[in-house]
Design a protein around this nucleic acid. Structure first.
Lengths: 220, 220
DNA sequence: ATATTATTTTAGATTAATCAAAATATATTA
DNA sequence: TAATATATTTTGATTAATCTAAAATAATAT
């Protein structure tokens, strides 16, 4: 099935929103993430429904159907493989990666993505800690917890982040924090969760607001 | 100026056709290279003309204007840098490279293309022997002649090809011929220009039809 | 120099994606 | 449960890109 880039964008948004809430995705929720009018969303939902890519009942929202889910997963695969390439091979900054990958993910060729995957050594996670589906669409979520749950004195590795907006990412970069960074938690403020990390011999302070967006995995 | 992928495609086609003939490009010529109707071409020419990207007079064909020419050259740059990446880094076959690069060239980000250029070591030519314009749009054509002009006994290097259709490219690949391949001309049939090359210790026979599409540069 | 042919443009439609405003359905609250 | 508020869909339009068929213009050939 040949889809337009716009149809693909809707499928991916639908996928993301379904994962977060695990129920029907409302027209308005889609409209707001895609920055489109609700009227446009309704039109597209009808179109995707007619193609049997989603299940949609008027006024009841939509969910991905079998076929749509496969296509969305393939998009995720492409998006994340490109992110690895942009970040690792081309040294493009964290905060610039997302926007470019969002364009690249619509390039059709499967041959291309498979060669790129091989070139990168079949990476399992993208630079934001998200898992990369394989050719069959299989992937495993990593066991990880928010940084704010960590006990002082513990050493951990940064494995994911919850938001990817530019300002947040460049803030992290300035603090020398990226995927795979290892640190030890020195302290956490019981009131506002401000944390102090020991990172590469230096003390780094993060606000609770920021710490809540960071996911980690303990190593000790 | 933000252009759609289609507008970009027209500019590139216009550029290619202008180079070949060095005069006004006719509506039909564009229609045939782009596989579109003449009516569609007329519409687009009017649109590009209104944006001052081309000079167009009804019934007189069109040419790139200053601004359109710059945009077309930038497209060429992107297209060719991507080709180098696909061929050299990803080991994608000669005959598959063109189609994928034609999609990739429309990716907007200049940041991306500059990083990719650096990653590849600022290549000067693409895998088909075509020169890659730099950021300022400057590039130099390589002095090269058709293989059929070569005298037997001469050693030369393959530097370009005139056509890039799949069948031709896979034919060349089967004969182990690619950009940069060095060979010695053993003989050339005076009637039909069939040539025999000595290439990597082996004799390779090419029809005149094929030999006429190959460009070379003598090395001895 | 006129008639014929070829090329190009115009006219009128179609499909994809979008929107604002109006209508309708669902949810909430009094 | 009726009234009000919120969410969603429908209606009617717009823009980009495309097409076929008809009309206009240019080129060519008697």
């Amino acid at each position: 099935m040949e889809l337009t880039a716009v149809e693909e964008t809707y499928l991916k948004a639908l996928h993301d929103l379904s994962i977060k809430t695990d129920k029907q995705v409302s027209t308005n929720a889609l409209a707001s993430t895609l920055q489109n009018s609700a009227a446009s969303v309704t039109d597209m939902l009808k179109k995707l429904s007619k193609k049997s890519l989603i299940n949609y009942e008027p006024y009841q929202g939509a969910r991905l159907a079998e076929q749509g889910s496969k296509l969305a997963t393939n998009l995720l695969r492409k998006n994340r493989i490109w992110k690895v390439f942009l970040y690792q091979s081309l040294n493009i900054r964290w905060e610039d990666v997302r926007e470019i990958a969002e364009e690249l993910e619509h390039i059709k060729s499967d041959l291309l993505i498979d060669h790129l995957d091989a070139f990168l050594g079949y990476p399992k996670f993208d630079p934001f800690g998200d898992p990369i589906p394989n050719q069959q669409g299989k992937y495993t979520l990593r066991a990880q917890t928010p940084l704010v749950n960590l006990k002082p004195g513990t050493t951990a590795i940064i494995t994911g982040i919850k938001t990817t907006d530019r300002a947040f990412l460049s803030h992290l970069r300035e603090k020398a924090i990226s995927m795979g960074t290892t640190f030890t938690l020195i302290s956490q403020d019981p009131y506002d969760q401000t944390v102090v990390l020991l990172l590469d011999q230096k003390e780094v302070l993060l606000s609770g607001q920021v710490a809540r967006q960071i996911l980690i995995k303990t190593t000790s």
